[in-house]
Design a protein around this nucleic acid. Structure first.
Lengths: 193, 193
DNA sequence: CTCATTAATTGACCATGGTCAATAAAGACT
DNA sequence: AGTCTTTATTGACCATGGTCAATTAATGAG
């Protein structure tokens, strides 16, 4: 059982990812065409699919990376101690996740672990978010009658709903943080006045 | 401004929908190919796209129809008066929405109103569900410190999360109703013991 | 250094959703 | 009926993600 990774493999892969970044910068995530990508990277189409299972796999990689950067920032920042600060701490992340309809769709498709054994990169970020938020809940002035983990999962559910509504013509006039706040107040506090 | 609808238009459309039902019966929603559909209906491919904006538009129609049938049944049934019965009342609907990954994806894509003015058929079923559930909440022994409408929206968020988790290898060993129950208990009751 | 073996790459090809200029059929008017 | 206008239908064609048998490059053994 040997698996020597050739140098050129790494180079090709790096080039593909780099070009993907460039093209996305220029045309957005939804605008990325595999044909353009391989032309930019100077390889054949088949090569792309030798490195990534499909287009979604590349997208998952790139999007998970960005999500993790936001989570890094969130972990560095001070622990929020009110529902308002919970919301505002999460906003940059949500703003990214909802930056394009296509991005949001990719995230939803991968938010659960894959059907296969392997847990995908985006599913891992969802898990990470829950862990981070659980900590906040344990330390802050929030309801204690249900497990933090369950509360954190619920926050995620409300976040997803808020982002989805954000793409809806009827609701996107009001900003996501305002939309989210009443739900989290009702969810996180013992009693809403 | 005249818009006479020709008889044959209605026939063609009816034939397309009928064939779609047949093919879905045989191969599932995800297995429906437009090529097969038009062959079955005995029309050219272009005809399909003269009747439906795209494949998704047909799917939305068919899926919304099924959802509405479930909502009919739900409205006929007695009003649930406990969290447990809320969950079990919703289960057949959720079971259908999560019957195929593809179906769930279509539903998510259309769950908000479309980007355009027009509200889609699936978005309307979401609205309908919230109205139905709001009534339950108003009449039953549930928390009263937040508006019923907000509570019902929240239930929808938890339902979506539960279905999503159901497609995840890590969580689908436990049935959806068990998965959903603790969330709704925490959401709908003043105090969880 | 040469050959054998394995890994990486290629590009013609396929599947499928979607487009549109050309054509046929309906309906209206005389 | 004949002609004109509007509406419905057609199918060749396109765009794009994805496949795979054939080819080329890297690597290790002798």
């Amino acid at each position: 059982m040997k698996k020597p990774i050739q140098q050129r493999t790494l180079k090709t892969r790096a080039r593909l990812i780099e070009c993907a970044h460039e093209l996305i910068e220029a045309h957005g995530y939804a605008g990325l065409r595999i044909e353009d990508l391989v032309k930019c990277a100077g390889v054949a189409k088949g090569t792309f699919f030798a490195h990534f299972a499909d287009k979604d796999a590349l997208m998952e990689l790139l999007i998970a990376e960005r999500i993790n950067q936001h989570l890094d920032a969130i972990e560095k920042a001070p622990t929020p101690r009110s529902v308002e600060t919970v919301v505002s701490s999460l906003m940059p992340l949500l703003q990214f996740m909802a930056c394009e309809r296509y991005v949001f769709d990719v995230i939803l498709r991968h938010s659960g672990a894959a059907q296969k054994e392997e847990v995908g990169a985006i599913a891992m970020t969802f898990d990470r978010q829950v862990r981070v938020v659980s900590h906040w809940l344990a330390e802050g002035p929030f309801r204690k009658d249900v497990p933090d983990r369950l509360l954190a999962d619920g926050i995620q559910a409300f976040c997803v709903q808020t982002m989805a509504l954000n793409f809806c013509a009827l609701h996107n006039s009001i900003p996501m943080d305002e939309q989210l706040l009443p739900y989290l107040k009702a969810w996180l506090l013992e009693k809403v006045d």
